[in-house]
Write a protein that binds this DNA or RNA. Structure first.
Lengths: 218, 218
DNA sequence: TCAAATTTCTACCCGTCGTTCAGTTTGTCG
DNA sequence: CGACAAACTGAACGACGGGTAGAAATTTGA
């Protein structure tokens, strides 16, 4: 029993409509953030995209920052899902390729070329901490995949932390140059990125295995 | 004969002092931009860092945007220089490694972990176009290095445009996590990045050359 | 078709921040 | 020391943009 009031519950059909509207707002915001950045985006910018006055937005979100935060929540959900998928795969190389490919595809195809990684500092206090924690978790898992690959000799022995940062940087930066109307499909882009960024770690190439006699010191 | 006036020229010593102060302001701004972003940074933020009131800044720069623009000019100068250096090297692999290594080093060691690539959209009109043109030139040269390497068989045949974007993304993203006080030196970081990002392209590994019989069709 | 609920609009408030300006302090040079 | 320029200050302005209140319009459901 929350704030106990006799509110006639919102009805099932109207709820779906409201949800849809919320999503539309979030995506309009995402588009605006991508081109101008969060701080340079006004509520009017977002509202104009929907053919509405800015005050209408306040029926769905209490303030501007919450809009950004909800965008983050949606994105983090996708990220979490894709990482879970990846964990089912057998080799580190497959896992890493899947993460890169899907991360790129989600950004481009379902998140308006998500510029969210750019806007974490715009969140304040508790929310920023939450998003950073989730991001750190993701980075840690990505790093783990790389370390696993190194241990299994699939990858060269690089600094997994830096490699993870490099990979995420390359991916996040896509928001800066990707054009949804352009000829490049998100999945192709993802495949190319996975190829380049994984190839950079893969030790086994066209040539056969390299014997590992150097690290047996005794 | 410009706007002919009998201005007593500024004296040589006072000029150097002024230049130094300008540089200090630019670097304070750079630090602020890195942590908060351009739009979220107030002139008070920059001024406070220098122990001064914001109005003092107006004796050196006519407005906030010009401060950002001058930061960009300084950075682009460094970038141009480093690319020129790279062009003297013999192999594409050496050139690419040098560009990456130096780009990273300049960002971390001399530009306060430069967040400038994030702030291009904050410039308006003519200036933005100028910076973008310079950036595009740089990207083109980087891409050329990659294409050269592919042609000479040093690199795998990847999409050079995407590879260049990936590399620049990885580098630019450094601004987001690099901590000047941290243990990691800029040059080490540069070396690691060059290793990973070039290794991703290098076709020749520990194993000897791969005979190229597949593309001689006739 | 009508009432209740939901969504959106018009009009306004108010804090922040870039910017201006007139004046004071600090520094330089003869 | 004295004259002048450079560096800086403090007060105030004005615009922009986030946020609020209440009225109007639209949709929902009988």
């Amino acid at each position: 029993m929350p704030t106990g009031a006799a509110q006639t519950k919102p009805s099932p059909h109207v709820q779906r409509k409201r949800r849809k509207r919320r999503a539309e707002i979030l995506h309009a915001a995402l588009r605006a953030f991508r081109t101008k950045g969060y701080h340079a985006t006004t509520l009017d910018d977002i509202a104009d995209d929907l053919g509405v006055r800015k005050t209408a937005l306040y029926h769905y979100f209490p303030d501007k920052e919450t809009i950004l935060y909800e965008c983050h929540r949606e994105a983090l959900g996708e990220i979490k899902r894709l990482m879970k998928e990846a964990q089912k795969l057998d080799t580190a190389e497959e896992r890493l390729a899947h993460v890169i490919q899907e991360h790129v595809r989600v950004m481009t195809d379902t998140l308006e070329g998500s510029p969210l990684a750019f806007e974490v500092p715009a969140l304040s206090g508790r929310r920023q901490a939450q998003v950073i924690a989730a991001r750190d978790r993701y980075e840690g898992e990505l790093r783990q995949i790389i370390d696993d690959g190194i241990k299994s000799k699939e990858f060269r022995p690089v600094d997994s932390k830096l490699a993870a940062f490099a990979i995420l940087g390359a991916i996040n930066w896509i928001a800066r140059w990707y054009q949804p109307e352009g000829p490049l499909q998100g999945s192709e882009l993802g495949a190319e990125f996975a190829d380049y960024l994984v190839g950079g770690l893969s030790n086994a190439r066209a040539c056969d295995e390299i014997p590992d006699e150097m690290e047996s010191s005794s």
